[in-house]
């Protein structure tokens, strides 16, 4: 009987990358690219920028792997780099008008993989989903960048207020405020379409 190949742990992968095994880094890229893309897309709102950001984040991660001490999980470390890369790209494009969110976060739990794609939909459902998706993206891009960042980190990634505050370099109260006003705006824009 053929035995199923065991997926190496992140610790093993990191060790192998440090020993110069580039295939181990490829495994890391393929394992985490989807979640990193979701965050980058949520923050930046377009495919090309999101892809560039994910690429940039992986390259930075590879080049600074020596700094990864294993105090947080590999994913959360990659995640931090992705958020900072998205912020850098926005800043370069002149879209972010404020502060640096350079502080590192230490999420408590390991984030899992995304679930598989939903079961096949009929054409009407697909159309409705696509239309709603467009509305959601328009709505979220209408938020001020601080509110958008807080919303993406909370609603897509499920980060705690403390973690978001760490990333955005603000108090938890400010995070709550940004979430509140962001949600209020999203409710105005999306609420009627979600009833």
């Amino acid at each position: 009987m053929e035995q199923e190949e065991r997926m190496p742990s992140d610790e093993e992968l990191v060790e192998r990358i440090r020993q110069g095994e580039q295939a181990a880094f490829q495994t890391v890229v393929e394992k985490y690219q989807q979640r990193m893309y979701a965050v980058a897309y949520g923050l930046l709102g377009n495919r090309e920028d999101a892809l560039d950001t994910v690429q940039e984040a992986f390259v930075k991660a590879y080049r600074s792997l020596a700094k990864f001490k294993g105090e947080s999980s590999l994913y959360t470390w990659l995640y931090r780099i992705t958020v900072n890369a998205a912020i850098d790209l926005e800043r370069k494009a002149g879209r972010r008008e404020e502060v640096e969110f350079r502080e590192e976060i230490e999420p408590d739990e390991e984030k899992g993989e995304y679930p598989a794609a939903p079961p096949s939909e009929n054409p009407v459902e697909q159309l409705m989903r696509k239309e709603l998706g467009g509305l959601i993206e328009d709505a979220i891009q209408k938020l001020p960048s601080e509110q958008r960042t807080a919303i993406v980190l909370r609603e897509i990634e499920g980060l705690s207020y403390k973690e978001i505050a760490g990333i955005m370099k603000c108090s938890e109260g400010t995070v709550m405020s940004r979430l509140h006003y962001g949600r209020k705006k999203l409710q105005e824009l999306l609420g009627p379409h979600l009833e």
Binding site: Q34, R35, Y37, A38, Y41, G42, R47, L51, Y114, P115, A116, A117, P118, R129, L132, G133, I136, E137, V152, I156
Partner: peptide, 9 residues
Amino acid sequence: HYEQVAVSE
């Protein structure tokens, strides 16, 4: 939506 975007890409 954003999970679906990531899955579809």
